[in-house]
Every structure is written in C-alpha cells, then in structure tokens.
Amino acid sequence: MSERKTVEEFNGIYLDLSKQSGKVKFAEAGLAWRPAGGAGGENFALDGQQFTQCQWSRGARGYEVKILLRDSGLIQLDGFEAEEFDRVVKIFRLFYGLNLEHKDHALKGWNWGKGEFGKAELAFSVQNRPAFEIPYSEVSNTNLAGKNEVAVEFSLPAGGNETGTNGHMGGARTKGRKSGAGKDQLVEMRFYIPGTATKRENDDDGE
C-alpha cells in the first residue's frame, strides 16, 4: 500500500456553526477540533467509534461534512473546499470504514415536498432531495397551530447572546443553539400537513 498519513488536517473549519473557524484533525482514533489561535485552550474531541454515517453537501460556509453519531446526535463541520472531497472520502474510508455520501440538496426553491423523520433530524425533501434538515436537538417546542398546521419553535441563546457557549470553543454551538449562529436567527417554522382523513382511507385500501 502507498504512503498513508496517520493524521489529516484542515484549516478554516467551523464546528457546529461556531463563530470562529478552526483546525480539524482526523486520525484513526477520531477527530479533534480547535478554534484558530487556540482560544479557550480546549480541544473538542470525538471518538471515531461514535461515527455511524457521514455526508458531504453544500453549506452556507463552503462544503459541509456532517457526521451522525451512535447516540443519535450529529456534528456539522463546515468550510471545506469542493476540491477536498476526494481527500475526505479517503479519510473516512481508511480511518473509520465509512462511505462519505455526496448529498445534493434541492435548489429548485419550492416550498412543497415531504417532511421525513430520520434518526437525528427532520429533513424536508423536494423531489427526493433534502432542502434543509433540522436536528431534533434544536427544537424547543412544537404545537398544532391550526387545522393542518404544525409550528416548530427553535432554541435560541438566552437573551439573544450571539454566542451560545460563553465564548468557549470559538463560539461553537453544541446542542440547542445552532439557530443562534447567524445574524438572522430562525425562530419558528410552520408546516402545512395534509389531513389525516386521506391517510386513513389509504390504510383501508390495504396499505
């Protein structure tokens, strides 16, 4: 076998929509992330044994590697370059035995599709491509807001603080803070879900 590195590094990577970018290192044991300049002096580390699935797709800040974890959580690493895809594929195959799935998102701009509940997140798909995903950890409340209408509210940093983690870890948002990442913060989302009467009819047909 040809030369195989034991550690692979990438700079300019955001962890869970952190304010600051940092450096991520991959090795067989897992991954570690540290904000640029080492602010806070801590490393975020994750055991490779926790990884169950990984995806590559377009994020707001470059390309995103999303890793689904054994405990049904997930982490987002944003800021990869398009050309780094092949390198990341190799890393996940060789270090963790995982296939990095290239997931194209819906770009049509339609507001209709299918809400699908996965292990760690709700995905809204347009013609079988995800348009966006909402990790369950970010949802603070849901309610039936009207006939066929479901409202989903998101957790936001208390008092509107821009950083959800007291400035540690480059302002990375672990659980329940991702909506507060940007200048414009998603507060609530409402869905129209068609009536259940139709569904019951289908069930009677032997579905």
Partner: peptide
C-alpha cells in the same frame, strides 16, 4: 403549486429575528 396533491407537505411560514 401542487395544492391538489393530498400527500404534499408545505413550508407555510418562517420567522427570523435579528438585532439589525
């Protein structure tokens, strides 16, 4: 829009907040 499709879900509204 596929208003007649009994299986289609719709995003009905999104609310954002900003200090700006």
């Amino acid at each position: 829009q596929p208003f007649e499709d009994p299986t289609a879900h719709f995003v009905r509204s999104l609310t954002f907040r900003s200090r700006d």
